[in-house]
Structures are given as C-alpha cells and as structure tokens.
C-alpha cells in the first residue's frame, strides 16, 4: 500500500510529461485512460463489485489498471477466481501471490466443491470443466451478492465477444441476451441493475492481444512463467501439443515428447495447446505475435466445438 505514494512505478520514466510530445495520447495511453475511467465508474456505481482475476495475462493488466484507478487507496473490490481444479499449478501460485502483494481479498470458488454440492452437474464422461465453471461462478455471485464482475475479456478474441458491451447486463439467471443489449453511447454507461441481476464489465474490450503484451512490456508487469519458453513433456492430440499432466491419460499409440514450448493463451491444463517457441522474454513474445499466423484462441480446443460455441456458453452466463 505504502508503495503507491509517489512515482513507485518502475516504468514511470516511460510516461513522459505531456507537454514534451504535445497533447496526444498514443494507443496504449488511450486504451489505459478508457479502462481506468470504466474501473472508477464501477467502483462508484455498484454496491458490491468484484474483479475476476485468474493470473492470466489479461487479468494481470486489469490489476495494474485497478492500481492506477484507485491508488493510493486500497483496491475497493475483492478478487474472484473460479478454480476448475484443472488449472496450471504455476497460475494458481501466481494468482495467490499477486493478491497477497496487492493487499487484496481473494475469493476462490472450486468447481470440485460445486459438483459435490450438486450445483454443477457433469454429464457422464465429461472431462472438461469449462461448462461447469458457469454454475460455479453464478453460485459465487449469488453467495457474495455481487452486483458487478469486472472481467478481462477482449472483443478481438472471438466473434460473439466482438458484440459485447463494456457494461454487459445479465439477468436474474446470469444470462446474456445479445439481441437486447443496452445501447452504449459516448462514455456514459448505464450501470443500473435490479436486485438479483448483475453486470459484467470488460475494461479491456478495445484491447488486442498485441496491446496486452505491449502494455505488459511498458508497465514491466510480471507474468506467470508458463508464458515463457520452457521444456515440457507434451503429447500430440487433435492437432495440438497438450501438456502431459496427472489429468491426461495417454491413449493407445500416443507418445510423449519433450519440447521447448510456451502457452499463448491459458485455459485448463487438459485443453490448452502449447506452442513450440523459443520466446523467453516479453520482447520475444511481441515479435512472435507480430509474425503469428493463427489467432490466440486457435490453440483452445474449447472454442472449436462449433461455430457458435462461445455464444452459447456466454448466453448461459460464461465470462
């Protein structure tokens, strides 16, 4: 907390006095001020907001934006994470540590517990915890009576997300109604919800994958080690390199192989494709993305199910 009094950001040198370069904002400064404005609207307009923090690169940017929006005060909202039980261990370690360092309250709700309580019901043979996150999240929202959840989703990720508002209204069942969204005009956000309803707010809506990494670079943000190149046992399946873990049972004929890999986007450990990459710094990653020929979500099996996979999950209350 005390660290925030003045000029504590190591990257402060990157923020030149405005007069030195005219009264213009570059693209990252513009995206940043837009996101800070949204965060402050949330803090001012909602009774019980929370911030969904997974430890992934997008939510890491959210944390810095929250610091920029609210320091020198304490962050006025707790962090919420739905733990599928299939997370990369590196990610959970990072999540817990960052919350501690920022003095934030971290609430973790586990899909495991939701299944035990009968809140989430897996279909027979269902391995993925992706769908089961939805009832777990909605139960947590109900438990803490959250009226707003800030999330790190970006519109460039996926087609149905491209239609998402900054302030995305969810009804009493947590559902998104894409045909009946509130018009969002200028920077005037309609934050009104009735009891039992809530809002999902996405400050990074206008950010691209490249913007996220450039911001991480400019702000010198720490990211979990799995984003950088490392050696890992992988297995080829469905056109992807899946990481070998306790949760992955080898099928007959499958062979493991040690590769130099990293993750580009983080989902569950059973469905996240590793990309072969020597990138071991943020600079390398930026160069890699600039030359990339597939989108970030191209390495997520959960999105490939059907053309409308994401839309269907979002309608039910997915983030």
């Amino acid at each position: 907390m005390s660290s925030a009094l003045s000029s504590t950001n190591p990257s402060a040198a990157a923020v030149r006095p405005p007069s030195a370069r005219g009264y213009h904002l570059d693209h990252l400064q513009f995206l940043e001020t837009e996101a800070i404005h949204i965060m402050r609207e949330v803090a001012a307009e909602f009774e019980r907001p929370c911030l969904m923090f997974s430890g992934g690169k997008d939510s890491i940017c959210l944390l810095r934006l929250a610091e920029k929006a609210f320091r020198p005060s304490d962050l006025p909202l707790p962090f919420l994470n739905v733990d599928t039980g299939h997370h990369f261990p590196e990610l959970n370690e990072f999540r817990d540590r960052r919350a501690r360092e920022l003095g934030a309250k971290l609430i973790v709700r586990k899909v495991e517990d939701a299944i035990a309580a009968g809140i989430a019901v897996p279909t027979p043979g269902e391995l993925s915890r992706n769908r089961l996150q939805i009832p777990t999240l909605l139960a947590a929202i109900e438990e803490f009576r959250f009226d707003c959840c800030i999330g790190g989703a970006r519109r460039d990720e996926e087609k149905s997300r491209a239609k998402e508002r900054f302030f995305s209204f969810r009804d009493g069942f947590g559902q998104w109604d894409p045909k009946n969204q509130r018009p969002e005009i200028w920077n005037l956000y309609n934050a009104r919800v009735n009891p039992g309803e809530h809002m999902r707010v996405f400050p990074l809506s206008n950010w691209t994958e490249m913007d996220v990494w450039e911001y991480i670079q400019r702000e010198k943000l720490e990211v979990p080690s799995i984003y950088f190149s490392h050696r890992r046992q992988c297995v080829r399946r469905g056109g992807q390199w899946l990481p070998v873990s306790d949760l992955l049972t080898l099928k007959p004929g499958e062979k493991t192989q040690e590769l130099v890999v990293r993750v580009r986007t983080i989902g569950d450990i059973i469905s996240t494709g590793m990309v072969e990459s020597p990138a071991d710094s943020v600079e390398d990653i930026i160069a890699e993305i600039a030359a990339a020929r597939v989108t970030e979500r191209g390495s997520r099996a959960d999105d490939k199910t059907s053309e409308a996979a994401m839309e269907d999950r979002k309608k039910q209350g997915y983030f």
């Binding site: 000029s7 950001n9 006095p17 405005p18 904002l25 400064q29 402050r40 920029k68």
Partner: peptide
C-alpha cells in the same frame, strides 16, 4: 495532479 506513475505538472483531456 496525482497519478500512479507519479505527480505531473499538467494533464489534459482525456487523461485519467
């Protein structure tokens, strides 16, 4: 004029 990145001498539209 307080910002997370330190105090500044001036600020302009649309900075936060």
């Amino acid at each position: 004029i307080w910002t997370y990145d330190g105090s500044v001498a001036e600020a302009f539209c649309p900075q936060s």
